[in-house]
């Protein structure tokens, strides 16, 4: 990290670091998990981040966009981004050849307050692509298992073919130190053995102590509202309900203005907000 390039990079927060896409793992229709390794070995091994943080990924010649990190910092060496093909950067990303050179800078954002979460029960509630940031927190907790009390995951998808990390999560069902509850709205194939129904239905299967539990919620708008209501009804404090928000981001470092909500920058003050933040600031949810 002492050559000229690294020095220049260090001084310019906007300049992406060279990295390679070393593996692409198709997930579901239009969703892939990209494994990315920095070219600089020190960066590859030493890239420190918190679950819930994001990076800015550049596709050379196309542009840059923010992506939450799906891997956990307890698995150093590569970072993983679970990406939906939806805009011009992701379209170009999906079309890249193997081992393609990309640019990464970050990590940015506050991430989950993991120190605060420790010694508590952890409830993760995800819907759809909301699993992407929560997977980082899930593995962080499982890799630091003794620091947390009960760990519960609730994840809902529309049908078995739309479950992200399906086999990885199905493998957690018989693991005894985590309660992994997976549900689908519909299963036409008849092979789905886990739960059926909306994700809030899974609350009937768990005992939750609102005073010693933190809930991290990530998913589509509709799901958000139902899950947050469910938690409120169970007596959760709004400070113990955490959510990851999405906004237009073009710099990641609190300058370009696009992700501003009231007086918070999603990129600096978020993307993880408590439910209190969210209702205290108009426009947030």
């Amino acid at each position: 990290m002492c050559d000229h390039q690294s020095h220049a990079t260090h001084n310019n927060p906007y300049l992406p670091h060279p990295a390679r896409i070393i593996r692409t793992l198709p997930q579901i229709q239009d969703h892939q998990l990209f494994q990315i390794r920095f070219e600089d070995e020190d960066m590859a091994r030493g890239f420190a981040y918190r679950p819930g943080q994001f990076v800015m990924l550049s596709v050379i010649g196309t542009g840059e966009a923010p992506f939450s990190i799906s891997s956990a910092p307890t698995h150093p060496g590569v970072i993983e981004l679970c990406v939906r093909r939806i805009g011009h950067v992701t379209k170009a990303l999906f079309a890249l050849p193997p081992n393609a050179l990309v640019g990464i800078r970050g990590p940015y954002g506050n991430g989950f307050p993991v120190e605060r979460l420790q010694q508590n029960n952890l409830l993760l509630v995800a819907g759809g692509l909301g699993m992407a940031p929560l997977r980082s927190l899930l593995w962080y907790a499982l890799d630091n298992r003794s620091k947390f009390k009960d760990v519960i995951l609730m994840y809902g998808g529309r049908n078995p073919d739309e479950m992200l990390f399906k086999y990885e999560l199905l493998n957690l069902i018989d693991r005894t130190d985590v309660q992994c509850l997976l549900t689908v709205d519909r299963d036409d194939s008849g092979i789905w053995k886990a739960h059926k129904g909306v994700v809030t239905m899974l609350f009937d299967h768990v005992e939750l102590d609102p005073n010693s539990t933190y809930a991290a919620v990530c998913g589509p708008d509709v799901m958000f509202r139902f899950v947050l209501n469910e938690l409120l009804e169970r007596g959760f404090s709004k400070d113990r309900m955490l959510m990851s928000l999405e906004r237009n981001m073009q710099c990641g470092v609190g300058k370009c203005g696009h992700c501003m909500i009231g007086y918070k920058y999603t990129c600096l003050d978020g993307p993880i907000f408590t439910y209190w933040d969210a209702i205290n600031l108009q426009e947030m949810i």
């Binding site: 550049s58 010649g61 542009g63 073009q250 710099c251 300058k255 370009c256 203005g257 696009h258």
Partner: peptide, 26 residues
């Protein structure tokens, strides 16, 4: 007002270009 938008501009040959920013408005 300091907001800006970031965009990549490609050279005609397509193999290189430059990242730029320009004043934006909310």
């Amino acid at each position: 007002c300091y907001c800006y938008a970031v965009f990549d501009e490609l050279d005609l040959a397509g193999g290189s270009g430059r990242r730029q920013r320009r004043w934006d408005s909310c």
